[in-house]
Design a protein around this nucleic acid. Structure first.
Length: 558
DNA sequence: CAAAAGTACC
DNA sequence: AGATCGTACTTTTG
């Protein structure tokens, strides 16, 4: 049989995506490599140190990884790469951080690793003492030490332990049932008596909030929950009240000046905020409370320069939750070092197959750029090119045709640039909701959409997180935030609430422009998760003047 | 409601 | 290869 993959010296894997065993073997591949590019039928994966540490933390050995490569590669694995893999996997656990005397922590390890750690400038700058048995730091530098070492290629296993926490007792309500994978997620996080901190990755709509609540309940300590927005914070609060018997007065949104409650919910923004004097008072007051656990909702946002201050709460167990542990700046490694390794993940498609999430089909439609735009496009700089491609006026006709085809279904129209999106919404006569739409007005539109009173709604980037519109079964993406895999995944995520009918996720791409490349890149995370994109020219998918049923390439209307 | 602060991407 | 800049967006605050 044909080989599944070709291994290159630099850790790049060329994988035959049409190989009969590809689907079955993909999870094992993803355990230590990341999908970097698609040139069908070749999928290009990259082995990165962070993925090897991650694999090691989940118990993989270098031998297993190398055996997998030997079994499926066309040629022998290059010796240098074999050595790199063995080295990187072995790094996990070589450096460990321990509690020292009096507010000190100690970095221990073999002499070689310690020597490497010693010369990392940011580490040297905060080393309190350099002893033969290890490097000593102030406990307050716990996050900084781990982050600096990880970015220098030295992952640290954190054995410092946690502060004494206040107890909190409540139960899940009788009728609150955890699904199998949710229970498994909780179990994995709590293994070793909950000593480990880490990240749980579950698709949008899979019930991450409930997993977080179940973890808090099982641990029985005071909990701080950090979310990306006030809206998300309120959703957590509501979920706590709906799903558990926790006393309502024990759960609150953080209010500066008011005493914190056993479960306190607030946003990354607020934690990071500083007052006029430059003091981060919220962070200070939240840090002093004896939390037993801090939950980081949408933890992929944590690496932002100020949001990551929220990771200074190292005295508590840390649980990160996200659907999309990817960033275009590669800062996922910060999540690994500041929160902990990924301890549980379920591929999106797997939950679809199990019937927990709606089935979604992905379609990429190429729309020609009209001649007038074509001229401007060719003489524009790269930024302007993105904008012109995104605002392609020919997309409007395609959107109209798709709306006709999906008459009677609830459709989201998603865009990045607000002005072109506004023009489109006006032309279609549908409401537009953006970040500047006042909260009450947002709620009114969302409610109208949920109840089916309106069937279409145009959304800017606010749709990327925490917008709950469960009835949507079709999304038309008219433009996106460049090559953001994160955004693509979150947007498809809007369609995953269980539906009776299959969802469709359309992406409109200006033909022959930079958009074609960015669109391909955006899709990589979802392709990793098992989704397939069908690509058509818009006229081929929606031929003018031809009845839909006769159109070539149009899947049967259901 | 406008200004300020923050994020993500190229 | 890594860093910086510029643009468009969101949330929070006064």
């Amino acid at each position: 049989m044909r080989a599944l993959l070709y291994v290159q010296n630099d850790g790049t894997l060329l994988v035959q995506s049409d190989h009969p065993h590809y689907e079955a073997l993909r999870p094992r591949l993803l355990a230590f490599a990341e999908l970097a590019q698609r040139m069908d039928p070749i999928h290009i994966y990259r082995i990165r140190p962070i993925s090897l540490w991650q694999a090691a933390s989940l118990g993989s050995t270098a031998r297993e990884i190398l055996t997998f490569l030997r079994d499926h590669a066309a040629h022998p694995v290059p010796y240098d790469l074999q050595r790199t893999i063995a080295q990187e996997v072995a790094k996990w656990g070589r450096l460990t951080l321990h509690q020292g005397a009096r507010e000190r922590i100690v970095l221990r390890g073999d002499p070689e690793s310690l020597a490497a750690a010693r010369v990392v400038p940011e580490v040297a700058a905060i080393t309190a003492a350099d002893r033969s048995d290890g490097l000593v730091f102030r406990a307050a530098h716990r996050a900084r030490v781990k982050r600096a070492l990880a970015s220098a290629g030295l992952p640290v296993m954190d054995h410092v332990g946690y502060q004494a926490a206040s107890a909190l007792s409540f139960s899940l309500r009788e009728e609150t049932r955890l699904r199998g994978y949710q229970e498994e997620a909780v179990r994995r996080f709590l293994r070793q008596g909950g000593e480990q901190s880490g990240v749980i990755v579950l698709p949008c709509g899979a019930g991450k909030t409930l997993v977080g609540i179940a973890v808090i309940q099982a641990l029985g300590w005071h909990a701080l929950v950090l979310t990306p927005s006030e809206t998300a914070a309120r959703q957590w609060q509501r979920e706590f009240l709906d799903r558990t018997d926790v006393r309502p007065e024990d759960v609150s949104l953080y209010r500066p000046g008011h005493p914190v409650t056993p479960v306190t919910i607030t946003t990354y923004q607020r934690v990071a905020a500083q007052d006029r004097r430059g003091r981060r008072r919220h962070l200070e007051s939240l840090t002093t409370h004896p939390w037993g656990i801090v939950v980081y909702d949408e933890v992929h946002m944590l690496p932002a320069p100020l949001f990551r201050l929220a990771a200074d709460l190292q005295g508590a167990r840390r649980l990160g939750l996200t659907a999309t542990l990817v960033r275009e700046d590669g800062a996922e490694a910060d999540v690994f070092s500041l929160i902990g390794p990924k301890c549980y993940e379920v591929p999106w498609k797997q939950l679809e197959e199990a019937g927990y999430l709606a089935a979604v089909r992905c379609v990429e439609l190429h729309v020609p750029l009209p001649a007038a735009e074509q001229g401007r496009y060719l003489s524009a700089g790269i930024r302007e090119q993105h904008r012109i491609a995104a605002a392609n006026p020919a997309k409007r006709g395609v959107v109209e045709a798709l709306l006709k085809q999906h008459a009677g279904e609830s459709v989201l129209i998603l865009g990045h640039y607000v002005e072109p999106l506004r023009a489109l919404a006006d032309a279609l006569g549908c409401p537009l909701v953006t970040g500047t739409t006042p909260q009450p007005e947002r709620e009114r539109w969302f409610e109208a959409f949920r109840t089916g009173r309106i069937r279409r709604i145009a959304l800017s980037r606010i749709a990327n997180t925490a917008v709950d519109l469960p009835c949507a079964s079709v999304a038309i993406q008219v433009s996106g935030l460049f090559g953001s895999r994160q955004e693509e995944a979150q947007r498809l995520g809007r369609l995953l609430r269980p539906q009776t009918r299959e969802g469709v996720f359309y992406t409109l791409v200006s033909k022959g422009t930079v958009e074609a490349r960015t669109a391909k890149h955006r899709q990589l995370y979802l392709v990793e998760q098992g989704y397939t994109y069908r690509v058509y020219d818009s006229h081929e998918y929606l031929p003018e003047g031809v009845d839909e049923d006769e159109a070539v390439g149009v899947p049967e209307h259901r």
